[in-house]
Design a protein around this nucleic acid. Structure first.
Lengths: 198, 198
DNA sequence: CTTGTTCTTGACTGATCGTTTAGGAATATT
DNA sequence: AATATTCCTAAACGATCAGTCAAGAACAAG
């Protein structure tokens, strides 16, 4: 009962996410959000709470939409090393193009706020762990099938991929030279491809 | 002539650098700087200009002090792959300890401000290029001495090291798990050590 | 239609933002 | 000692910050 909400909270949250993603937490003002979302200041507070909680909602939304799509190859049942490669290739296409110099919202949030905001820190840590686990499982399955190079240890290799990816993503956002991230990502992909036998 | 300055600008700049390094540009207020530096508000403006220029001065100071010390092994005349390894080892010790979870000021600045501040972007780009060049030269010298593994191409390998390092540094700041960055850095060092023959 | 509930609106809160001003204090030069 | 120059101090500037309030508008239930 009562007056129904006049906007789509999910759609507006998506806009807020993009703003935080591009500009970061501190550099994004509630005024900018009000304008970008096209809803009233009070409606914004009424729907999402204060700036802090809106930021966390935006981060969660990022996981559910952007990241969810990217890790799809890793979520398939019995995903093996080709799931890992599929994930890397999705990342590659996602990072291509001039409009995609925002890096990863999770990494940005972690670097800007991890040290001083425990909620953000928790989400970042969870994400690193989840990604590492998914990748390790993929490598493990290929190893069990006897198709992974002996010298490649799934746990160390998975950890290595996660860290290397952070470097590539950081380069995507912080360097104007598109060749840097692209070269490194291609290098990483061919490295992983080289781990599979036959 | 006139009244002499009552504080050491370099010493105060060092404090400002640490504040920006830890908290970033937006999250550091002039009020905090006034308190941390222990000088008057106007003296701060009089000596360093506005917040923007103070930030750039702090970034330059970071290059001259922190980074300068770390790349010392790479600046030695005829530095080869051992200069690269020496640099990585200096980084390793610098990143160890609980008080050193700030990552790299240059990377932080690039991620927070690169997209919207051209001055910062220029400094970040310059740094990536300089580091890559120094490392490439080191690898090149070892290659010319016939002591670098054939498959290692100095230009690609140098670029790879720079990107991988960004990942390690990003991990240092954004993850609470100290094992992540440490594992990856050890992995990178032994990888580079493996490139040298005999 | 009436009543109760919820959303929307625009103005407004005190606090803090980066920056500047005016006046006094301290030093170098004459 | 007188003067010129520079720095220091405290107060204040307008702007913007995140967040809130009171009143009215829009719907659901009776």
């Amino acid at each position: 009962m009562g007056r129904p909400i006049a906007f789509d909270p999910q759609e507006k949250l998506h806009i807020a996410m993009k703003l935080f993603w591009e500009r970061g937490y501190e550099a994004t003002s509630m005024q900018q959000l009000v304008q970008a979302l096209g809803i009233n200041r009070f409606s914004l507070y009424n729907c999402y709470g204060d700036k802090e909680s809106l930021f966390q909602l935006a981060l969660d939304h990022y996981f559910k939409t952007v990241i969810r799509r990217l890790i799809d190859p890793l979520l398939k049942e019995n995903a093996d090393i080709y799931g890992v490669i599929g994930y890397l290739q999705l990342l590659q296409t996602a990072m291509t193009g001039k409009g995609s110099r925002w890096g990863c919202f999770v990494q940005n949030a972690g670097i800007e706020r991890g040290l001083h905001d425990q909620q953000t820190q928790q989400r970042v840590d969870d994400w690193y762990l989840q990604l590492e686990t998914l990748i390790r499982n993929g490598l493990q399955r290929t190893a069990e099938a006897g198709r992974l190079r002996e010298r490649v240890q799934p746990d160390l290799a998975a950890r290595y991929i996660v860290t290397a990816l952070q470097g590539i993503i950081a380069m995507r956002r912080s360097s104007t030279d598109d060749q840097r991230y692209a070269d490194s990502l291609s290098f990483l992909i061919s490295e992983v491809e080289d781990w599979v036998l036959n």
